[in-house]
C-alpha cells in the first residue's frame, strides 16, 4: 500500500541534492595534483558557499587603533586576550576564541588625526579556514 511517506521520499529521489556540493564530484586520487590543476585552470570546481553577512570569522586586530583600555579582556568569555604591558597592546589567541564578537562591541577604537569618528581596533573578518596543527602558530596569534 503506497503511503504518503513513500510518495514524499520517492519524489525526493528525483530532486537535485539539497546539500552543498563538494568541490569535485568524486574524491580525487591526488589532492595536491587537483589543486595545481585548478590553479592552472584545467579543472573547474564547484565554488565555495559564500558566508552570510555579519558572519563572525577570525578576529582582525589593528594595533594602530588600539588604545590599551583592556575592555575586550574584561568581557572576553574565553580569556582569549592577553595584555602586553610593554607596548600597551593586546595579544589575541585565535585558538581560544569562540567568535562571539563581544570584544568588537566594547572596543572604543581610536580617532587618528583628520578622521571624524573613531574606528575600532577589532573587527570580525570573513576568514574561517583557520585549522592548524599548532595552536600558537603565526596564523593563530595576533598582536
Amino acid at each position: 500500500m503506497p503511503t504518503k511517506m513513500m510518495m514524499v521520499l520517492i519524489k525526493q529521489m528525483f530532486r537535485k541534492p539539497y546539500t552543498n556540493r563538494f568541490p569535485v564530484k568524486y574524491a580525487p586520487k591526488d589532492v595536491t595534483g587537483l589543486i595545481q590543476k585548478v590553479l592552472r585552470g584545467e579543472v573547474k570546481i564547484h565554488p565555495p558557499v559564500p558566508v552570510p553577512e555579519d558572519f563572525r570569522g577570525k578576529l582582525a586586530y589593528d594595533p594602530e587603533r588600539c588604545i590599551g583600555c583592556k575592555m575586550c579582556i574584561r568581557v572576553c568569555p574565553a580569556n582569549a586576550m592577553e595584555f602586553i604591558p610593554e607596548t600597551r597592546k593586546i595579544r589575541h589567541y585565535v585558538a581560544r576564541c569562540m567568535f562571539c564578537a563581544l570584544c568588537v562591541d566594547v572596543c572604543p577604537g581610536k580617532k587618528l588625526p583628520g578622521e571624524e569618528a573613531p574606528v575600532k581596533a577589532l573587527k570580525m573578518s570573513e576568514e574561517f579556514l583557520i585549522a592548524d596543527y599548532d595552536k600558537y602558530s603565526k596564523n593563530l596569534v595576533e598582536e
Binding site: 521520499l9 525526493q12 539539497y18 552570510p52 558572519f55 563572525r56 567568535f99 563581544l102
Partner: peptide, 25 residues
C-alpha cells in the same frame, strides 16, 4: 534525512540573522 533537509532552512536563517548556526551570541 528528509526532515533534516527541512531543518537546514531554519539553520541557514539563524545563521543569516545571528551570524552563526549554533551558539548565536
Amino acid at each position: 534525512y528528509w526532515t533534516w533537509k527541512g531543518r537546514e532552512m531554519v539553520m541557514d536563517l539563524l545563521e543569516y540573522l545571528t551570524g552563526n548556526r549554533v551558539n548565536y551570541a
